[in-house]
C-alpha cells in the first residue's frame, strides 16, 4: 500500500539525503525540490553526485539516509510500492537503454500492457501518438540497432511518455550523442517543457538550461553549491566553485 506520508504539494522533495558507495560519500546532505510544472536543471563536474541524486529519486540507487517524497509519497519508506511509483516517473538515460530485442512499437507498448494493464489496441494508440510527438512516426517496426543515437534517444523519450508519467527525469540525455544529433533531442525536451511537463534534467547543455530551465542547481563534491534562476546563476555565479566550473564549460 502506498500511504502518502506528507503532501508537500511538490513533485519532488528531497531532504537531508546522504548516499555512500562503500566508504565514499557521494551525496552529503542534499535538500532539493522540484515544483509541479517546473524544469530544474542540475549541472556540475562529473563525480559531483548529480546523476546519483537523480537516480535516488526513483530509487535506482538506495539512499543511505534522508527522505525523498515523490508526489507526496515517501519513496524511502519500505512499505511504498516502488513499481507503482516508478511507473509514474519517466526516466531517460544517457545510454538510451532501449530493449534491443524488441522493435520500437514493442518497446513503447510492453510496460503499458504489463504495468498499466492497457489493452494492446490502447497501448498501440498511445505509442503512435508519442512517436509522432518525438518526430518518429513510421519507425514502429524498426529495431533500435537500425536507428541513429538521436532517434534511439527520442524513442526512449516516447517510451517513457507512453506511461503518462507525472514527471520526467533526464540523466545526461545528450552526452552520448554525436553533436549534430543533440539538437533533435533537445527540441523534443523543449516541447515537453512548453507543455508543462515537470522535468529534472542532469545536463551539460548550458544553453538548454538557460533557455528552458526554471531553476538551475550547481552541484560539486556531493553538495548543492548554488541554485537559482538559470540566467542569473550562469551570468553571475556567487560561489568560487561555480565560477571556476562555468569558466571551463562555457
Amino acid at each position: 500500500m502506498t500511504v502518502p506520508q506528507q503532501t508537500s504539494g511538490r513533485a519532488i522533495e528531497v531532504r537531508d539525503l546522504h548516499k555512500y558507495f562503500g566508504e565514499n560519500e557521494v551525496l552529503k546532505g542534499i535538500d532539493f525540490h522540484v515544483d509541479h510544472g517546473q524544469v530544474v536543471c542540475v549541472i556540475g563536474p562529473s563525480g559531483s553526485g548529480k546523476s546519483t541524486l537523480l537516480r535516488c529519486v526513483n530509487r535506482l540507487e538506495d539512499p543511505t539516509s534522508g527522505t525523498i517524497w515523490v508526489e507526496g509519497v515517501d519513496i524511502t519508506d519500505p512499505e511504498t510500492d516502488l513499481d507503482q511509483v516508478r511507473s509514474r516517473i519517466g526516466i531517460v538515460f544517457q545510454s538510451f537503454n532501449l530493449f534491443p530485442h524488441m522493435n520500437v512499437m514493442r518497446n513503447l507498448c510492453i510496460a503499458q500492457q504489463r504495468v498499466r494493464g492497457r489493452s494492446k489496441d490502447e497501448a498501440v494508440e498511445v505509442a503512435r501518438a508519442n512517436l509522432a510527438k518525438v518526430g518518429l512516426a513510421g519507425k514502429e517496426d524498426a529495431y533500435p540497432a537500425h536507428l541513429s543515437g538521436g532517434q534511439q534517444q527520442r524513442v526512449a523519450i516516447a517510451r517513457a511518455l507512453s506511461m503518462d508519467p507525472d514527471m520526467m527525469l533526464f540523466d545526461e540525455p545528450t552526452s552520448a550523442l554525436d553533436p549534430e544529433l543533440v539538437g533533435d533531442v533537445l527540441a523534443v525536451m523543449k516541447k515537453l517543457a512548453s507543455e508543462g511537463m515537470t522535468m529534472m534534467v542532469v545536463t551539460h547543455e548550458m544553453g538548454f538550461a538557460r533557455e528552458v530551465g526554471d531553476k538551475l542547481v550547481f552541484m560539486d563534491d556531493g553538495v548543492i553549491v548554488e541554485e537559482g534562476d538559470p540566467a542569473e546563476v550562469l551570468a553571475n555565479p556567487q560561489h568560487e566553485r561555480t565560477r571556476s566550473f562555468l569558466s571551463k564549460v562555457l
Partner: peptide
Amino acid sequence: PKGQTEAARSLGMSAGRTTLSVVLPQALR
C-alpha cells in the same frame, strides 16, 4: 547490460517481469 534492467524497472516492471521479458531473451541470444 545493467542499463536494460534499470530501464525496465524504471518503467515500473517487477523484478520477475524484467527477468522474463527483458533479461532472459537477451541472455539466451
